[in-house]
Computed example of a mutant assay.
Amino acid sequence: MQIVETRAGAAMVAAIDGRLDTATAAEAETKLLALLGAGPLIVDLEAVRYVSSAGLRVLLKTAKQAQSAGVKFSVCALQPAVREVFEISGFDRIIPSYATRAEAIAAG
């Protein structure tokens, strides 16, 4: 798994490439939580083909930390399998999700 960080206006975009699972969850959590101090955070999941419950926990924890800090947090570009996991788990009602990175950036 790799996380590439880029600035898009006021927002920080963290593009994850690879699986978000038990083996990568600790590294992802550390990086995402550290990025919350840089302003609004968008997690681009376009290159993520699999998310386990450990991966979902990382995203939920990041979302909760963002809410506590008053920082906007969202995800974008979910692949069909990942979107299905989000919908089944109800995360689509907890974490704002956008079809593309451009939509997420435009939403602020």
Rank of each mutant, 00 (worst) to 15 (best):
M1D: 01
V4G: 06
E5D: 05
T6C: 14
T6Y: 12
R7V: 06
R7E: 12
G9E: 08
A11K: 05
A11P: 10
A11L: 07
V13S: 12
V13K: 07
A14R: 08
A15F: 02
D17C: 00
G18D: 00
R19A: 09
L20E: 00
L20D: 00
D21T: 13
T22I: 05
A23V: 03
A23C: 07
T24N: 02
T24P: 00
A25E: 01
A26W: 04
A26G: 00
E27H: 05
E27R: 04
E27M: 07
A28E: 00
A28P: 10
E29A: 12
E29R: 13
E29P: 02
T30N: 07
K31W: 00
K31H: 07
K31M: 08
K31Y: 01
L33T: 15
L33S: 13
A34L: 11
A34Q: 13
L35C: 12
L35G: 12
L35N: 07
G37L: 11
A38G: 08
G39N: 11
G39S: 04
P40E: 10
L41A: 06
L45K: 12
A47C: 03
V48P: 01
R49V: 00
Y50V: 04
V51Q: 08
V51C: 08
V51M: 02
S52T: 09
S52W: 11
G55V: 05
G55T: 08
L60S: 06
L60W: 06
K61R: 13
T62H: 02
T62V: 07
A63D: 07
A63P: 00
A63G: 01
A63Q: 12
A63R: 13
Q65W: 06
A66H: 04
A66I: 12
A66M: 08
Q67V: 13
A69R: 14
A69Q: 13
A69P: 09
G70L: 05
V71H: 03
K72M: 03
F73N: 01
S74W: 01
V75K: 08
A77C: 10
A77R: 12
Q79L: 12
P80K: 03
P80D: 14
A81M: 13
A81S: 11
V82L: 03
V82T: 06
V82R: 04
V82S: 02
R83N: 12
E84M: 11
E84Q: 15
E84F: 08
E84R: 13
V85F: 09
S89E: 07
F91T: 09
R93V: 07
I94L: 14
I94A: 02
I95D: 02
P96E: 13
P96S: 06
S97V: 12
T100H: 15
T100A: 15
T100L: 12
R101A: 15
A102W: 10
E103V: 01
A104Y: 05
A106K: 09
G108L: 09
G108F: 05
